[in-house]
Amino acid sequence: MRIVNTVPVLDESKCIGCVICSSVCPTLAWSVDRKTKLAVLDEPRCFGCVNCESRCPTYAIKMVARREDRFLYVDPRLVDYAEVEALCRKARFHPEQVVCFCTSSRAEEIAAAILTGSRTPEEISARTGIRSGCTIECSQPLLRMLEAAGIPHRPALGGKGWQIYGRVPTAWEIPESVKKKYADRGFHFDQDIALMEEVIAAPAEPPADASAGHSPIRRLPEAAPETLDFTASNGTSPAGSRQQ
């Protein structure tokens, strides 16, 4: 679950229309107007990751506190949990495995987002909040899950964006010749595969309630559940805004 409590504001006098903000935004919330050459924010897409603020070369963007928090979460109970499990394990994740360390989101949430219609990392991010913190460590799980669902990855903005270029190798793809060559240097390729396979094969349980997908004492705020858009399927607008 992601609590979104900040939003960017633009100082137009500083903007030079360089498109860096739109190149680094994980939810494609920024675009640059062709006529004015100024950045334009589609605010409902923003999940407060601060990438734009951090990379704008002219310091034109500043994060401020939102008037009201938004909550992003896709409940794995929306779909048959057997399907969630099958997709996670095909991508070589355990359904309960944490895949985004900033939001403590589990693989099952990505699976639920895909099974309810999300087709790109950007769509999944906008609905789940995954990739809204460091924005980097969870990028491979997103691609591996989409690939397992048979959805090919196309880099955002027609290949011009810098969001995610592509999947990189997994342990299962390391050539035997490489493993042999470095066997005495401490890399433990096959032993690590055995460890990961033990995790993948461990039994899984669907979450008991909407909040249980997360760490045990993290709870949805009481006012939030009815605002969550559990049925959003096109993934183009973030679920669960209390502000809109």
Binding site: V99, T135, I136, E137, C138, S139, Q140, P141, R144, I164, Y165, G166, R167, V168, P169, T170, A171, I174, V178, Y182, G186, F187, H188, F189, Q191, D192, I193, L195, M196
Partner: peptide
């Protein structure tokens, strides 16, 4: 390294094979 590589390090290879990246 770019984010794909760093994510691969922490999610794709395993705890002791990671640095092979």
């Amino acid at each position: 390294a770019r984010l794909e590589t760093r994510s691969g390090y922490h999610q794709n290879l395993g705890p002791r094979a990671a640095n092979f990246i």
